[in-house]
Design a protein around this nucleic acid. Structure first.
Length: 274
DNA sequence: ATCCAGGCAGATG
DNA sequence: CATCTGCATGGA
């Protein structure tokens, strides 16, 4: 077990974990979170603005939390857009996690037309049923382990009609992984992802952003659509295209600031300052 | 009871 | 290219 410390104005474990990009985490106390990725666990305590990571896999989680990137530059660039000023100020502690690609693919297939609380429960049950038992938690299932599941078993976990998507994609996804892993171009990655059952435009964007860490993308879910729609931007695709053109390579990060602000912060912020 | 949640597949203009 | 419908589940 080893420890790693990190102090930066542009890192908040709470905002990073609760902004909707990841589902396998637990709040232990006001100052302590646990996050799970594949078969690994990391405990994160924050005191006086200093984050302390305790884990058996320090190199993995240093990369996972994207600690080497300067989010100050990104946040500064995005603050220049008037519509982002408040969201950036409130959410600048978010980092885009470098999550495992396969885990991201299955997690976001489950996320479709679902709510975050339920998604977390389903994924937890999926890990308990098919993942390797670790010391005090369960690993995310491998593709091979997922292929052991029947559609009926998956439905019993609460997957509903997504059970068939998981079943199908568990049998096809390996053939696209090599191309996807080396993909540096969003349009190509998107085209490849859309061949899989259960992956449409929005889920593909999330996988591109959280699993491939390509940021020139803009996932449009119901929250983002409600926040961004106007007279002319009246479909998800129009919103998507407009904000990629506007924010460029920062679009994915801008999207996370907005999503988190709209979903978790705005009401609190408005109440606080009356 | 109806609506909503990090939408998608399949069918039809 | 765009638009429309059906879809599992559970909480508000």
């Amino acid at each position: 077990m080893s420890e790693l410390t990190f102090k930066n104005e542009y890192f908040s474990i709470e905002d990073t974990l609760t902004c909707g990009q990841v589902f396998r985490y637990k709040k232990i106390s006001e100052t302590q979170y646990e996050v799970y990725s594949l078969d690994k666990r990391c405990v994160v305590k924050t005191q006086d603005g200093i984050a302390v990571f305790t884990t058996d896999a320090p190199e993995y989680f240093e990369k996972y939390f994207d600690l080497e990137r300067s989010y100050e530059q990104i946040a500064t660039r995005l603050s220049c857009y008037p519509e982002l000023e408040k969201a950036v100020k409130a959410c600048k502690g978010i980092r885009i996690l470098r999550q495992n690609l396969t885990e991201t693919i299955f997690s976001f297939i489950i996320s479709a037309n679902n709510n975050i609380k339920r998604i977390q429960g389903i994924i937890e049950r999926l890990c308990e049923k098919y993942g390797k038992k670790m010391d005090g938690y369960y690993a995310f299932p491998t593709i091979e382990e997922l292929r052991q599941a029947t559609v009926a078993e998956l439905k019993a976990l609460g997957l509903g009609y997504r059970a068939q998507y998981i079943y199908d994609t568990a049998r096809t996804v390996e053939s696209i992984l090599p191309q996807l892993e080396k993909c540096t171009d969003v349009d190509t990655a998107r085209k490849i992802l859309l061949t899989q059952k259960g992956i449409g435009p929005k889920v593909a964007d999330c996988i591109i952003l959280f699993g491939l860490n390509l940021t020139k993308t803009y996932p449009v879910d119901t929250w983002i659509f409600k926040a961004n729609k106007t007279e002319t931007l009246d479909t998800p695709k129009k919103v998507h295209d407009y904000f990629i053109a506007r924010y460029g390579d920062d679009a994915g990060i801008a999207q996370q600031y907005i999503f988190h602000y709209e979903r978790n912060v705005r009401n609190l912020a408005d109440i606080a300052k009356l």
